[in-house]
Design a protein around this nucleic acid. Structure first.
Ligand code: MN
Ligand code: MN
Ligand code: ZN
Ligand code: ZN
Lengths: 156, 156
DNA sequence: CTCCTTTTGGTAATGGTTACCATTATCAAT
DNA sequence: ATTGATAATGGTAACCATTACCAAAAGGAG
């Protein structure tokens, strides 16, 4: 059992207030759900999971909170091709746990992968630097997704 | 003036019929609009541009055709964060003219870039090969987008 | 022509997301 | 504690890009 964060409080407690926002029950509940569930939840799924702990919360507030958290960089918002946005906690203060996705175009399965080749990270930085300079564009984030067929769908 | 394709016919003429689909006036008009316009058009924008040449066409058919073409790999479908899908012709039989995007999170401007570092292409292939193998996943396509602030928006 | 399949256009429905607004919670100053 | 300004919330209605549906038209084979 680690010394810090024993009461279930996350690294975000301070962060949110630093940004001038209040750490309300609803926001905390949403962050807790995000941190305890394995990725790629839709707004409604989050709403469902939050409801038992916080029955008064409305779907509108879920959307609002997710938008807020995405704007602050605490949450990533994805589009995997099904018609709803998917949200995922950017764990860690600086977006550790960053990863990319394999998406099956047949069954919509999504596979996380973090095992970048070392060179991949290196080159990504170089690319970002080069683009930043050439196009006078301040890069703050990137999205990398590979599309294709998962093993199940590939065997028809 | 090149010797081939002087009558405005594109490389797709045969391709579509090879796949067992008819090359109708509507489909041809849509492909022509896509090939003559510079990228990132929405379905409705395409509809507007096709209308003068083909007044009988309906918006439904535009959506249908774009879906068909995307399925065949002739067209790429993008999500740039405004709430509508954006379509872009994958010029050339094997998707030459492939490029990635810089997207301004403030004004939604989209910048194409094709000047990959040579290593980038090389590493991308390696990465795809590695992922393909490790996850038993047949990769057919990829999406790479960098987000941030364009020069105009960066100077507030 | 006849039969059968493909393609099409108009319209209605869908459904995730947002706008709106009145109500409530929070907090600093009095 | 009381006040008042501001932030946050929930419910509902609206939004709007996309899709479903269906009857009509077009094309092709024989
Ligand atoms: Mn993920
Ligand atoms: Mn482009
Ligand atoms: Zn699959
Ligand atoms: Zn911009």
């Amino acid at each position: 059992m680690p010394i810090s964060n024993c009461q279930g409080d996350g690294w975000w407690q301070g962060k949110i207030q630093e940004c001038g926002y209040r750490l309300t029950a609803g926001r905390e509940a949403i962050l807790e759900v995000l941190s305890k569930s394995e990725g790629h939840l839709s707004a409604e799924e989050i709403y469902m999971k939050v409801h038992p702990r916080c029955p008064s919360i409305g779907l509108t507030s879920v959307y609002r909170t997710l938008e807020l958290l995405a704007g602050l960089g605490f949450v990533f918002k994805f589009d995997f091709g099904d018609k709803r946005a998917r949200y995922e906690l950017a764990e860690g203060p600086k977006g550790a746990n960053h990863h990319h996705h394999l998406i099956c175009t047949k069954c919509n399965r999504v596979i996380d992968y973090t095992d970048f080749i070392d060179e991949e990270i290196e080159l990504l930085n170089q690319t970002e630097k080069g683009l930043s300079q050439k196009y006078d564009f301040k890069i703050t984030n990137h999205l990398i997704q590979f599309y294709g067929l998962c093993n199940a769908c590939n065997e028809k």
